[in-house]
Structures are given as structure tokens and as C-alpha cells.
Design a protein around this nucleic acid. Structure first.
Length: 471
RNA sequence: GACCCUAUCGUCUAGUCUGGUCUAGGACACAGGAUUUUCACUCCUGUAACCCGGGUUCAAAUCCCGGUGGGGUCGCCA
């Protein structure tokens, strides 16, 4: 039963990354969906840094998360970089708040201290699992009235039902869960507890998160009930998968947004690609800007099953967005991928323009444009021969090019093309191919006249000469 | 193992709620062709899927039941 999405008074969503690593691509997609839903519904967003694991959390990762989110163009209404301070948006700075609620639960006997030994618990868990039981805490400390130790929630044995906005009703048995640990000690809340308290305190209305959280939702609901908090709306997104269909977040390779950023993917391509992993507009349109998505997005069109992250399609989209860029804009983006040079800006733009149609990633420019920037080309002379041309024919062709071009005054693509075509007659390949190889040293490249114009007359003639002299 | 989620081309997906118009549509990738000196771009064409078995029905990709496959979760991580 899919629930119709009702509009509460105020829609507020959260981006809850954990700074234990670089911003993960799967996390970025989840944030994107949160962002789009908020925009679509006219709601607000809060960036909250989930660093209750102080051991693993690092400041540099917080920075990375903020930087890459900005790069993607996903902004938020409230969060840590507003005013340059983390303020109340970092869980490690909210221990007093958690403490207050923990004390409340303890006082109401809804939670209790447990000082069972960690190794013994692990042994019990393994034993239960080997006997085919759902591993859960046996309740040893439940009625001991301890005054220290970890804090456990007294979990009632009952069914917990919630309506997922994407999947419909989901029911689970809390009796299988056992009393979960909600804090290491009174000043150190754990994830489940911190999240539930924060979502309430920050007046979050909708939780949109990965499918891997479905099993956590009953815990959060139980916690809300214990604390007397109102219920929230939940939507669990299908996971992003590796080619073998396993959860992408368990992979080591390129999973950080930074990896894609550095490899020369465009944020608009990444956004467009990610949103289509689990969502579709219901029409045949596939190319969307963020602005369009903010209008088109809807949770009803979100898929239920996982989606394989297919780099080929990402590459296709990235190429598409690269081709749509203006030359000056693309040149700026390519700057860091070009080796040092002292060419005039106009020339660099021409170089970029000649490579634009061939790029899948910004980083491709390095390879694509290298012959423009090199002094001497290094290639196999055999490459100079078109079809079955022999050494002499190649030489004649190059000499002919030299002769014609030497006398050419108007050094422009069209003019160069024209005089060479006239000279070549029927056998265009016999002139254009050796000429192009002489200029580029590459099997595949932009057309020769285009390269020649960019190189300039002097360099062009020099390269022809180099090719003739080449042994 | 227990519990939960899920199931249309190799991949992302439309269609499923409201059964017929689906000889299952689009995109990526792949193959072929046109264009081009080459590559790329662009255009055209093609290959390719309803997990299986029952049932309901005049009619099922669509509804029901049962299998099977895939995934996720079972932390003093988040």
C-alpha cells in the first residue's frame, strides 16, 4: 500500500553525513534526493554532522563533505558552515542535549545501565546465531539497577509498523531486537539515540535515507515512543550497487565524490546520472538540470530495487555536458588538466574547442591536446602512410603540403582546407592523412587544417619538415 | 542462520495500482551503415528482457498463491 504524501505544516529534511571519510557517492545521492524533495515541497534542509564516533571522525572530512556538496550545487538552509561555526549542527557538540534525554529515560526506567562484558556478549551472539536464532541481548542487566555502564533501551516485545513512502507498510518484530545500546555512557550517545533526539529537536519532518536503514527504523520509532516524540515520515531509497549487485558503499575503488571531481566529471553530469539511479520522470526525458529536477522530482517515481552504478552511462552524460559547455567555460575547467605552457589564452581556447567533441572527462584533455603543447613529436613513421602508400609517396605528399602551404597567406582552417583539397583531387586521404599525422603524431585526432591553424604557419611547416626528415 | 526489502533487455528504466491499445517503449553499451583524411560528433538500422510454477479471467508483464534468485540488516560503527 503506497501512502499518499500528505503535506504537514512544515517540511524539513536533514543531510546527515558522518565525517569518517570523504563524502561518499552513495551519500551524495541520498542527500540529492533529500534536497530535491525539500525543494519540490518548498521545505527546508539542515546539514548535520554525525560525529558521535569521535575516534573515527575527522575535521578534514567535514571540510571535504561541505566542499563537495557545494561543488555539486546542493545547498542547505541550516548547517555548520553558516557563520563559519559548527554551532549546534555537530553531534559531538550536543552531548548536553542527549544527556538530558538519557537521564529522562533512565529516570522513567525506560532505559537502564548495563555492564555486561563485551567479549561475553560477542560469544553469546555467535552462539545464538549458530543455533539459528536472531542474535539479541539476553537482558542480563535489565533488572539489576546498575548505576554505570552502557545505557540500553528497554525494548518492548511487540510489532512495530511504519509506512514507507516508497515501499508501503513495513512490519517488524521488536521482540527479535533485544535491548539496544543507546549510549556508551551518559555523556556519549550512540547513533540511534543521537539521530532520534536531533530529528526531534531540529523539527525534521521527513527522513529519506538508504534502504540499509530499514532495519534501523523500528529502533528509531521505539526510541521516539519512549521519549514521547511524534512520528516522522520515512522513505527508504534503493541502494546504489556495484556491477556484481553488492552494496556500493562496501567497495574500495572510486566511491568518493572527490574521486569523480578530480577525474574531471562535471557536477551537472554526476547529479543527472545519480538521480536517474532510482528515479525517473515518467517521460522519456533523461537530461535534467538541477533546477529542472527541483520541479520534476517526486518520491512516487522512486524505484524500489537497487540500481547498478554504470560508469559507461556516466561517461556518456559527462561527454554530453562537456559538449554543451561554452568554449571559454570549458577552457577554465580544463586548465588544471593541461601541462604548463605559455600559450596565449585565445590559442588555448582553440585547443580546447578542437578537443571538446572528443572528451568524456575533463582529464581527457591531457592526452587529447598533448601534441599542441609538445615541441617535438614522437611517433612511428609507418603511421604517416595512408592506405598502401610507400615511403616515397608519403614524402611526396608531405613535400606537396609544404609547397602549397608555404605560399598560403591566409592562415585559416577554411583556406588551408581549400588549397589542400584542390591539390589532392580524388585522393584526399593521400594528402590529408600524412599531413595530419605529421602535425599530431596520432592515429586519431582533430582534422589537420584545424590543427594547422592553431599551431600557426611556422610550427606547421616545421612539423612537416620533421616528418620528411624522420627515419 | 533469523528477520526485512526486492524481481522487465548486459546496465538504467517506461508499462504494474486502474488486466486488453505491449507483435513490451526509451536511454547507455554493443553490432552494422551514412558522413569524414582518421577519431569523435551527428544521423539511420539492428541484436537484446516480462525469474519459475500454479491459479483467477474471454484476456495477465500487469491480480492471487507458492517457489527461486538477488540484496540488506543483525555492533559499546554510522
Amino acid at each position: 500500500m503506497k501512502k499518499k504524501i500528505e503535506v504537514p505544516k512544515k517540511i524539513r529534511l536533514r543531510f546527515p553525513p558522518s565525517p569518517t571519510g570523504l563524502l561518499h557517492i552513495g551519500n551524495a545521492r541520498t542527500i540529492l534526493f533529500n534536497y530535491l524533495f525539500a525543494k519540490k515541497m518548498g521545505g527546508e534542509t539542515v546539514l548535520r554532522i554525525e560525529d558521535t564516533d569521535t575516534e573515527r571522525s575527522k575535521l578534514e572530512y567535514v571540510q571535504n563533505i561541505i566542499d563537495e556538496l557545494h561543488w555539486l550545487g546542493l545547498d542547505w538552509n541550516e548547517g555548520p558552515d553558516i557563520g563559519g561555526k559548527f554551532g549546534p549542527y555537530k553531534q559531538s557538540q550536543r552531548t548536553d542535549i542527549y544527556k538530558r534525554y538519557l537521564e529522562q529515560l533512565l529516570a522513567e526506567k525506560k532505559a537502564y545501565y548495563c555492564n555486561c562484558n563485551a567479549e561475553e556478549l560477542e560469544a553469546k551472539r555467535q552462539d545464538q546465531q549458530s543455533r539459528g536464532l536472531a542474535p539479541k541481548y539476553d537482558g542480563t542487566c535489565r533488572d539489576k539497577n546498575n548505576t554505570s555502564g552502557v545505557i540500553r533501551l528497554r525494548v518492548p516485545s511487540k510489532k512495530v509498523v511504519f509506512v514507507d513512502l516508497i515501499r508501503g507498510e513495513i512490519e517488524s518484530d521488536a521482540g527479535l531486537m533485544g535491548d539496544i545500546v543507546i549510549a556508551r555512557h551518559i555523556d556519549s550517545a550512540l547513533y540511534h539515540f543521537a539521530v532520534v533526539v536531533d530529528d526531534y529537536e531540529m523539527q525534521i519532518s521527513h527522513i529519506i535515507r538508504g534502504e540499509d536503514h530499514i532495519a534501523n527504523t523500528p529502533k528509531h520509532i521505539l526510541l521516539q515512543e519512549a521519549l514521547g516524540f511524534p512520528k516522522l515520515e520515512y522513505a527508504h531509497l534503493p541502494l546504489m550497487l556495484n556491477a556484481d549487485k553488492s552494496k556500493m558503499s562496501k567497495r574500495a575503488g572510486d566511491v568518493a565524490v572527490s574521486d569523480y571531481h578530480q577525474a574531471g566529471y562535471l557536477p551537472e553530469a554526476l547529479i543527472n546520472f545519480m538521480v536517474l539511479l532510482g528515479w525517473n520522470p515518467g517521460t522519456e526525458q533523461e537530461i535534467f538540470s538541477l533546477k529542472e529536477l527541483e520541479k520534476e522530482f517526486s518520491l512516487e517515481k522512486v524505484q524500489k530495487s537497487g540500481a547498478v552504478f554504470n560508469v559507461q552511462k556516466l561517461d556518456f552524460m559527462n561527454g554530453l555536458y562537456i559538449r554543451q559547455k561554452s568554449v571559454p567555460a570549458l577552457t577554465k575547467l580544463c586548465a588544471s588538466f593541461l601541462p604548463e605552457h605559455n600559450l596565449p589564452a585565445k590559442t588555448v581556447e582553440k585547443i580546447v574547442a578542437s578537443c571538446q567533441g572528443r572528451m568524456k572527462k575533463l582529464s581527457d584533455i591531457t592526452e587529447l591536446a598533448d601534441f599542441f603543447l609538445k615541441e617535438k613529436l614522437d611517433y612511428d613513421t609507418a603511421l604517416l602512410a595512408w592506405d598502401k602508400m610507400n615511403r616515397e609517396q608519403v614524402k611526396d605528399a608531405l613535400l606537396l603540403c609544404d609547397k602549397i602551404l608555404r605560399g598560403l597567406e591566409k592562415w585559416e582552417v577554411a583556406a588551408i582546407q581549400e588549397v589542400l583539397e584542390k591539390a589532392a583531387g580524388e585522393n584526399k586521404g593521400q594528402i590529408f592523412w600524412p599531413f595530419r599525422i605529421a602535425l599530431s603524431g596520432k592515429k586519431a585526432s582533430a582534422p589537420a587544417p584545424e590543427i594547422a591553424e592553431i599551431l600557426g604557419k611556422e610550427k606547421t611547416l616545421q612539423r612537416i619538415q620533421d616528418a620528411i626528415d624522420k627515419k
